[in-house]
Simulated scan of single mutants.
Amino acid sequence: MTTKLTQRRGHENERESVTRRIAFAGDPNVGKTTVAALVAARLAERTRVEVTGEATELVPSREASTDDALGIEWAVEDCPPGVEAIGARAERLDTVFVVTTPETLESALRYERCASQHDVECFLVVNRFDELARDRLRTFDGPTLAEYFYEKERISTAIGNGCVPELSARAVEAILIEALQSERQEPKRALEALERGNQSIVNTELEDREKADSLIDSFGAAGYTAAYFECNCHNHDGHVLARRQLP
């Protein structure tokens, strides 16, 4: 599904801006609102974000004073429990993240089928993860895994106090990366894809964080917007994503 275009009025004139619309769906009591709030809170540090659903009790919609997210604004929907929530809002979604626990992993298949029927990209987020579930998750034939969150007392305590848990950016930003561009490319191929117009957003992995600034500068010199995103992967530090500007 293509990114939706919305109109937003600036201080001096009206400009066209890209809004990426993502939703978090899942069965009751899997921590869906917790995950949605974690993502929305991180986005609010980088750009403008609109939040709907129960997650608004933890993270209200916010205007950011800086733009560190490729010039993309976000809408985060914390869906009501149940598969039907996807179909009810499919026309306005780019990506849906199905939240499960290790015990409810199979439920993701129902959500994946519904998302596929509505041509909405679908990924998996596993909440309350523990190492005993790693082998099962590795062999699970369902939505592509975007991220998992370990069960931690400080997370449940923060939510119980009406606060967003404090986690490192690398524990959250993998979800943003998947929503923007899941395909990884070498920098040269990524630049070629932008120049040829094959992709509007490209994703490159970096083994070393120190290389990020030079790669961002390279994309910038070619006329593209780029930003660095952290991730939890063991074999590299993070990603630089770049995008073509709107015409």
Rank of each mutant, 00 (worst) to 15 (best):
T3R: 14
T3W: 12
T3A: 14
T3G: 15
T3C: 12
K4W: 03
K4C: 09
K4V: 12
K4Y: 03
L5I: 13
L5F: 11
L5K: 15
L5C: 07
T6V: 14
T6H: 12
T6W: 12
T6C: 10
Q7Y: 10
Q7T: 15
Q7F: 13
R8K: 13
R8G: 07
R8V: 05
R8Y: 08
R8N: 12
R8E: 15
R8H: 12
R8D: 12
R9L: 14
R9S: 08
R9K: 04
R9G: 02
R9I: 08
R9D: 07
G10R: 06
G10Q: 07
G10I: 06
H11V: 11
H11Y: 10
H11P: 08
H11C: 02
H11L: 15
H11E: 13
E12V: 07
E12S: 14
E12R: 14
E12L: 15
N13G: 14
N13D: 10
N13C: 01
N13M: 07
N13I: 11
E14F: 07
E14K: 04
E14C: 02
R15W: 02
R15A: 15
R15G: 10
E16A: 09
E16I: 10
E16V: 13
S17M: 12
S17T: 14
S17K: 14
S17A: 14
V18T: 11
V18N: 10
V18A: 13
V18Q: 11
T19P: 00
T19Q: 11
T19V: 05
T19N: 08
T19E: 06
R20F: 00
R20T: 12
R21W: 00
R21Y: 00
I22C: 03
I22N: 02
I22S: 10
A23H: 06
A23R: 08
A23C: 01
A23M: 11
F24H: 08
F24M: 03
A25D: 02
A25M: 09
A25P: 02
A25K: 04
A25C: 05
G26Y: 13
G26A: 14
G26I: 07
G26H: 06
D27V: 02
D27L: 09
D27H: 09
D27P: 00
D27E: 15
P28Y: 00
P28T: 00
P28D: 02
N29M: 01
N29C: 02
N29E: 05
N29L: 01
V30F: 00
V30E: 00
V30P: 00
G31E: 01
G31W: 03
G31C: 02
G31V: 01
G31P: 00
G31I: 00
K32Q: 05
K32L: 01
K32C: 01
T33Q: 07
T33N: 13
T33V: 06
T34M: 13
T34A: 10
T34S: 11
V35L: 12
V35Y: 05
V35C: 12
V35R: 03
V35P: 03
A36F: 04
A36D: 05
A36R: 04
A36L: 05
A37P: 05
A37D: 04
A37Q: 06
